[in-house]
């Protein structure tokens, strides 16, 4: 006949085994290796911030007004873009000396030339904004309808039109 003694110990042994296996599985599962190219959380925040800043600039202050971004591109005003974009990015509820957020950007405008080719010209950069070789940048874009005939940066041979749709593209990174 089967010896049915010490069944409590057997059960306890099984339970302990299951617990140990689960713990090992859990410990192995928690070790996530973060590689630099895998850090999406800060990228996501930066991309949202940049999109919001461009959306703010592309919105008129009052109904029927022309918006700031259209004016900037029509007149190719580098300084105004820099002031306005940086002010939107670094707009904090606290005073700025409590938080240093060193953001750099490089903005350019893409347009369709006469031959159907896509060409671009630089719009503005931040202080160290021309160093775009190594920085992990995110890209934010905004469609803008401008008066192409007044944009001096688009060559006349490139079929300037009024209205013309251009794409403002900003590379944005920390550092």
């Amino acid at each position: 006949m089967v010896n049915d003694q010490a069944q409590m110990y057997t059960l306890e042994g099984f339970a302990a085994g299951v617990l140990m296996l689960l713990t090992a599985y859990l410990v192995l599962g928690t070790t996530t290796v973060y590689t630099p190219g895998d850090v999406h959380i800060t990228d996501m925040q930066l991309q949202q911030l940049g999109s919001d800043a461009l959306a703010m600039m592309d919105t008129p202050n009052s109904h029927g007004d022309t918006n700031e971004l259209v004016n900037i591109i029509n007149t190719t005003d580098h300084e105004l873009f820099d002031d306005s974009f940086m002010a939107n990015l670094q707009n904090l509820t606290e005073s700025t000396d409590t938080c240093i957020d060193d953001l750099q950007y490089n903005a350019s405008v893409y347009y369709r030339a006469a031959s159907g080719e896509v060409a671009s010209y630089p719009l503005a950069t931040s202080d160290r904004g021309d160093l775009v070789s190594r920085e992990p940048a995110v890209r934010v874009t905004r469609w803008v309808t401008v008066n192409g005939e007044s944009v001096s940066e688009i060559p006349e041979a490139a079929d300037r039109r009024n209205p013309q749709l251009v794409l403002v593209e900003v590379l944005l990174w920390r550092g």
């Binding site: 893409y110 369709r112 159907g116 896509v118 251009v166």
Partner: peptide, 10 residues
């Protein structure tokens, strides 16, 4: 055409 071309390119 601007919209289509720039979307495809960029």
């Amino acid at each position: 055409a601007d919209l289509k071309t720039l979307s495809m390119a960029r």
